[in-house]
Each structure stands twice: as structure tokens, then as C-alpha cells.
Write a protein that binds this DNA or RNA. Structure first.
Lengths: 201, 201
DNA sequence: CATGGATCGTACCGATCGGTTCGATCCATG
DNA sequence: CATGGATCGAACCGATCGGTACGATCCATG
């Protein structure tokens, strides 16, 4: 019995559909760039349904951002995990994945940072802060495996590079952002064999 | 006769006052976070006056961003110029200035990047792109003086670091962002005497 | 087949938005 | 002192916003 108790059509599926479709529209156009009416049209759902599931546009946005943050965090963690144990390979895989993201036609920067910049609501800022903490933790782990004397500092420097790369890819029309960020990231690793790097600089 | 022909009270001064006060309010609360009515109250001017000087809220925003971009660009260029000829000293001065900015209670990130994220208007995106170009040019100049084989690449990497540092300072409550970014930036310079750096990493 | 929750479509609400208008006031100039 | 541009303050406008209400419809369950 996959259908919930005493209901029809499966509300859970409806909620998931709203979340997925609304995420795409609000990411492309901005949180304040599309009203609830048009949002419902795009999603293919009535206003009453949307409001019964989320109560408020802000709540929808928060649910959306939490899911997105978790998805991105899991994605990057998987990319790193699949790259083996070498921090060099892990960073290569990470910035390679970021570059693929930058090349996606729908790429419009980090959804959480965009939201925190657009919406001055405390809950949104909290979600963004949590997202950056997860990001920082992933990079600090790489810094530890690389044998950094101060992995929390190197982790934060790698975070600046990764977020800076995303920012530049968002606002400048440029190629090879990921490759250049990777090159800089590798240069920050302790006792790295520089001769093994492409001599692009 | 400092007062313009055939007028009273000095409109130029009024315009400058509006621009300055509106910049502070819109930077703190966001471009869409305060309406024109409240904006006029805060600035201390009537709506008719504001609209006669700028015609549109969007035009006011654009004028504001252009002035802000020019101001920031001039500020950073002066900081670098006053630091002498050594790229090491120039980066130290640059990230030191950025850190002072981060410590300012009214600091809320880069106004141009915030605006480009909030307002999906082409003119705003153009101003932001121009601002990043100026920023990139300044850093590429430092990269050239440092003797980088590919100064345009090193310049872009320094831009990622600087903007990434600003981003982290905006969204994470952390200290020493400027110092850590500086340390990373110096590590990217070619043939730098690493022993002279603080061994913090 | 009847019930009732889920959904739809639409009309509606109050609030706020960007922008306009207008009469009153201020003040440097002629 | 009279003129006229700059400014004020408040009323006003149409549009849009987030959110609600309601009758009709759909459909899995009992």
C-alpha cells in the first residue's frame, strides 16, 4: 500500500513535484522574480495546493534551499569520495565537477548564496551558513589528508577559491575557470610535486 | 557664482545627497528591500525631487552602482599604488584593506555583486561585469610585476581569491579572512621566498 | 456506489509597489 | 518686491504581490 492513509492521488508526490519544478523556476528567475501565481502555472498546480503543502512562499523557499543544499553537498562529497584517497586527485575531481556545472546552460551561481543575497530573511541566511559549513568541512578534510599543518586554514582558503571560482564563472564570461582554480588550489597544498602539474602559469 | 544658471538651492548638491544617502540605505537593506516612499523619507527628500533627478528607481540604482564601482576601483588602485613596487607588498596592502572593509559594521558584501544577484536587469549586470574587469585588471597588473609567466591567469586566480574572501567574509562569521586570503595569494606568486612568510599553514 | 480528502480554476482581498499630480512653500535672481 | 525654478507633502493611480475562499471535479477507499 504505497498510497498514504485516507487520501487520494498521493500528496507526497505532489509536494515533491512542486519542490522540483519551483526550484528550477526560482533559480532561473530569482526568488522575487516570479510571483506565486506564475509559479503555480509553471509548476502546473493550483495556488490552494501549493499553499496547503507549504503554507507560505517563504516556507517553500526554505524547503527548496534545504533540499538543494543537501543535494549539492551530497554531490560534491560523492565526487570527492569517488576520486580515491589522493588529495591531488580529489581536488582535480572537485574542480572538474564544478567546471561541468559552470558549463551547464542553466548555471546561475550558487542557489544558496543567491538566496541569501536576495532574501534578507534570517532562516535563509541560516541555511546558507549551514551550506558553507558543509562545504568548508569537505575541503578541510582534503586539507587534512594533504597533511597541512593547519588544515582548517587551508580548508578555508580552498573554500575561498571554490566559491570565488563559482562567482567568477557566474558574473564573467570566461572559460577554464575550473582549471585555473584547480591549479591555484594545488599550489596551496603542502609539499606537492610541482613538476607534475601542467606548466600553464 | 557657484550656483547654476536660473535655479535655486543647487540641484547638483541635492542629487549628490540623494545618491549618497540612497546608496547607504539600499546597500544595507537590499535593492528591493526598501520602497521608493521609505527611501525618500530616509534620504530626506520628496518623491517628486527624487524622480526629477533620476527618473526611475532603476536609473537611480544604476547611477548609484556606477559611482560605487568607480569609488571602490579607485580605492583599491590607490591602496596598491601606495604600497610601492613590490607585488608582495601590494598584495599585503590590498588584502589588509579588504580586511578593514570586512570589519566595518556596515559591511554587507560587494554592492555590485549583490545588485547583479538581486536585480535581473541587463544594465546592472553590465555595471557588475565592468567592475569585475577593473578588479581583474588591477590584479593582473600585480601578477605582471611579480613576473608571472601567464599574468592573465594569475590575475584571474587572485580575483577568485579576493572575491572568494569577500564572499566568505559576507556569509560566514569568521576572523582573519583577509590574512588567510593574503597567505594563499602570496603562495601563488612565482619564485617567492616562502621562508619569509609566516609559517601559519 | 457513496464518502471525503486532494486538486482545480477563478474570483477576491488588503497591502504595497513604482510612479504621477498638484497646490503650497521656499528662495536666489532680476 | 516679483518671478520662477526647486522642493515639499500628501493624495492619488494602476499594477502586482502574497494569500484566502469557494464551488466544481477527481478518485482511492470503505
Amino acid at each position: 500500500m504505497p498510497v498514504p492513509r485516507g487520501s487520494t492521488i498521493d500528496p507526497e508526490r505532489t509536494r515533491a513535484t512542486i519542490l522540483r519544478a519551483a526550484t528550477a523556476v526560482l533559480y532561473e528567475r530569482g526568488l522575487d522574480g516570479v510571483g506565486v501565481a506564475e509559479l503555480c502555472t509553471r509548476v502546473g498546480v493550483s495556488k490552494e495546493t501549493l499553499y496547503r503543502h507549504f503554507g507560505t512562499k517563504d516556507k517553500l523557499v526554505e524547503a527548496m534551499l534545504v533540499e538543494r543544499s543537501d543535494h549539492v553537498t551530497r554531490w560534491l562529497a560523492d565526487v570527492v569520495a569517488d576520486a580515491g584517497d589522493d588529495p591531488h586527485d580529489q581536488l582535480t575531481a572537485l574542480f572538474g565537477a564544478l567546471q561541468e556545472w559552470y558549463d551547464d546552460p542553466v548555471f546561475r551561481g550558487c542557489a544558496m548564496l543567491n538566496a541569501a543575497t536576495q532574501h534578507h530573511v534570517e532562516a535563509v541566511r541560516a541555511i546558507t551558513a549551514r551550506h558553507l559549513d558543509h562545504y568548508l568541512r569537505l575541503l578541510t578534510g582534503i586539507a587534512e589528508r594533504a597533511g597541512a599543518a593547519r588544515p582548517e586554514i587551508l580548508g578555508r582558503q580552498l573554500l575561498m577559491l571554490a566559491e570565488g571560482a563559482t562567482l567568477v564563472a557566474t558574473h564573467q564570461s570566461t572559460t577554464d575557470v575550473g582549471a585555473h582554480a584547480l591549479q591555484a588550489a594545488l599550489a596551496l597544498l603542502p609539499t606537492t610535486d610541482q613538476a607534475a602539474l601542467p606548466r600553464a602559469m
